[in-house]
Simulated assay, not measured.
Amino acid sequence: MYEPIRTKSVHRTMAGTASDFPHRSREEELDIQLAGHLAALLAVTDELRGLTPSADLETAGERLAEQVARLRGGRPPLRATPSAAGDPAALHRRAHALAGRALVVAASRADTAAAILAAERMDAHARAGSDPKELSSTP
């Protein structure tokens, strides 16, 4: 009634057989997640630098790039070219959310340096979001 299987299964379910595909450890997965969140935060930071240049954003960008490079085995992240268009308030909200995600993963990974940086960025973007003067382009 059924046609017999003619090829071997791609899944190896027998105990004791080695897997043909690589597995990542939990730590490697967390490194990848954390690097991704920090890289996304770096991109938003670069966008904010284009709209509202400041020494704080410049320093934050450098520190974020260092952390991403560390997590990626020394490979530096690509930096976004800041544009002159965008809503600073929306970017601050996005940056705050990304920093929060990075903080959760950094805490799970027990990465103190990344957790401190993420918490600092959350505070900075929360302050920027609550101060309308800081977000407006008029003096």
Rank of each mutant, 00 (worst) to 15 (best):
Y2W: 11
T7P: 06
T7M: 13
K8M: 14
S9G: 10
S9F: 12
T13E: 14
M14W: 10
G16F: 12
S19I: 03
F21E: 11
P22F: 04
P22G: 05
E27V: 08
E28N: 04
E29Y: 12
L30S: 03
L30Q: 13
Q33P: 06
Q33I: 05
G36Q: 06
H37R: 05
H37G: 02
A39R: 03
A40G: 09
L42E: 02
V44W: 10
D46L: 04
D46P: 04
E47M: 01
L48A: 05
R49D: 00
R49I: 00
G50H: 00
L51G: 02
T52Q: 15
T52I: 15
P53N: 11
A55F: 08
L57I: 06
L57G: 01
L57D: 03
T59Y: 09
A60I: 05
E62A: 09
E62M: 07
E62I: 02
L64M: 08
E66G: 02
Q67T: 04
A69V: 07
L71P: 04
R72P: 07
G74M: 03
R75T: 13
R75M: 11
P82S: 00
D87A: 08
H92R: 13
R93A: 14
A95H: 14
H96T: 05
A97H: 08
G100M: 08
R101N: 15
L103Y: 04
V104I: 10
A107R: 11
R109M: 12
D111K: 01
D111A: 05
T112G: 09
A119Q: 12
M122F: 14
A126R: 03
A128H: 00
S130D: 08
D131P: 04
P132H: 01
K133V: 06
K133H: 06
L135I: 00
S136D: 07
S136K: 00
P139T: 00
